[in-house]
Design a protein around this nucleic acid. Structure first.
Lengths: 344, 344
DNA sequence: GTGAAAGCGCTAACAC
DNA sequence: GTGTTAGCGCTTTCAC
């Protein structure tokens, strides 16, 4: 049997197609009894409105696009990060009856502007969610902005204009983690920074410094070392730190992957965690629970952030939300087995 | 400026819209000079054909749907698995100028049939790629088949009908891994099975048995133990195996996550890998390189499988491919640090 | 509260 | 080679 159209439904229900349209769009001005008749016709014919026809006529596509760094292009975004972004966005989509189109892209590709334009102008999504660190890349954001499609950036390091965005309290919660380590008696707490282009991650360094100060400790630049968010850089940085004449007793990495690298080095060197070295990460990626010992980290609410971002685009009160400047979804400490009291 | 339409391009190029249509669809019967004129008009106006209009008129959407198990609903699919499926599908999409719509779903949800129908009938994708283990679930596959949309299943445990599918040589390559372990001198090689609903994974057990036989060893049922593909089940199974009066000297797990669980137990118990115990996995997930020691495993070509599947739907010679029954993309051993000679 | 007509931007079928 | 005409299946506008 061929797919039923709105005409079939109208005929069966004995009404005009406009009335059917009103019913499927939850519009007012339909008598309850009429609505019922239409609904039963829809059920009987197993009718599903055709998205393309709807889109063409109404300029609403019920489509959301999620763009993020192409994981094949760099090291940066771990698969867990992307999956959680997708999960949050999908949850919002389900709620708002939308579908999700994903588009990983390489911001260093000179054609990225054209690529995004083509994507957006041909699919005409209702909104675009831009994940970090892509949300900081001017060429990407501009390409999307120029299409006049509503968009929300997640964790943009800086809030360029007054566009709505969603972020977490990287700085505050990093300070909290640092204070926690200090409260365990650690005096020499090192910090491994993340990918330099990931602005939100840079705020974590600020938080680390805040936390030291708040705990009455001073910042020792020898203990701040530059990683690039990858496990491999965690390994390198850990080796450098542990080779210091006076090595740290705690290492706080700007993300879980680098913390995993630190733990690998400790395992190799036979350094007991947490007895001889405390290690903390940031993200609460799947890896955090997969490695041994389980990693103390900051639960970054990626799902919620993505969901919030998508709902700002397609949710019921999207207009108001988009006016509201910005939304912060706070992170939380996840204390596990990789941190403990400083050795006496 | 409002978006340019096909009419604008036609006007500017001084041709009919049909000619523009021919150019954007790479159809023949356009004089080279005409084509050039149209193309320059397109460039000048920054014209992008509207997907919805195209879809409505042509019944081709340039959309691919990828369905897979909702990771929030169970343990089974790790984020790496999904990401690699997405990557492969995306690669094919890029090549064929399509976009990708993702749809994780819970096959145990009673509404899943309706959910998939709605998704497919409203978005009218050119094809649907069904990832394992969802590719084995009759309700899911039937729901999709009933929409008459072309689909390809990835690693269906069994080939129900003569539908085209893509798989890997689970059995053969598992036998190969088993023979490799035997060649290292291991006599007591254990096997941890995966999620019982994942049919392709069951083939790995067969391969393990084949490999033992081929190496002149016999199958000891005491050494075959049931996991469920999760890290946690790897932990449980490892503890059981290592508590045997005569424990194995090598453990082959049906996937990397479970192998990671085995390694965790060994780390905790102070068992040296690979000196005292060899561990092998299957998948070559990101985890395999992230844990310590790096895991010997089977590289399952998930990306390639997904790409092959998607190209069968939207590639240039899709018709022929879809007729060709099935395609197997072979896996390969990845020898790393978790396996070594059996202790004397 | 309901319907008729126009048209969203494109492609299909056919004429020239 | 190229253009004309008629839709694809819906929403919009406006009339009733």
């Amino acid at each position: 049997m061929a797919k039923a159209t709105i005409d079939d439904v109208a005929k069966l229900a004995g009404v005009s197609i406009k009335t059917v349209s009103r019913v499927i769009n939850d519009e007012p001005n339909v008598r309850a009894s009429t609505r019922e008749r239409v609904e039963s016709a829809i059920a009987q014919l197993n009718y599903r409105p055709n998205l393309s026809a709807r889109n063409l006529a109404s300029h609403r596509s019920h489509l959301v696009v999620l763009v993020y760094d192409d994981p094949t292009a760099y090291v940066t975004p771990s698969s867990g990060y992307i999956i959680r972004m997708q999960e949050g966005t999908l949850k919002a989509c389900k709620q708002a009856n939308c579908d999700l189109l994903i588009h990983p892209c390489n911001y260093r590709n000179p054609d990225v502007k054209d690529e995004l334009r083509t994507l957006i102008e041909r699919s005409r999504p209702d909104g675009v969610v831009i994940a970090a660190p892509l949300s900081n890349m001017a060429n990407v954001v501009n390409a999307i902005a120029e299409t006049n499609t509503p968009y929300v950036r997640i964790s943009p390091g800086l809030s360029a204009n007054d566009q709505f965005f969603v972020a977490t309290n990287d700085r505050e919660v990093s300070a909290e983690m640092t204070r926690y380590l200090a409260s365990l008696g650690h005096k020499r707490i090192a910090f491994i920074t993340g990918h330099p282009e990931h602005r939100a991650v840079a705020n974590r360094l600020q938080g680390y410094k805040d936390g030291l100060t708040q705990s009455g400790l001073t910042v020792d630049e020898e203990l701040v070392i530059a990683g690039d968010s990858s496990i491999a850089s965690g390994v390198t940085c850990a080796e450098e730190l542990l080779d210091l004449s006076e090595p740290p007793t705690a290492i706080f990495a700007a993300n879980d992957d680098m913390a995993a690298g630190v733990i690998q080095v400790a395992n190799r060197r036979g350094i007991q965690i947490p007895e001889q070295l405390s290690v903390a990460g940031f993200d609460d990626s799947a890896l955090a629970r997969q490695i041994f010992p389980a990693l103390t980290t900051v639960r970054q609410p990626l799902n919620e952030m993505a969901e919030t971002a998508a709902l700002a685009l397609i949710g019921d009160n999207s207009e108001e939300v988009l006016q509201s400047g910005a939304l912060t979804v706070p992170g939380k400490l996840q204390l596990r087995d990789s941190t403990g009291p400083a050795r006496a």
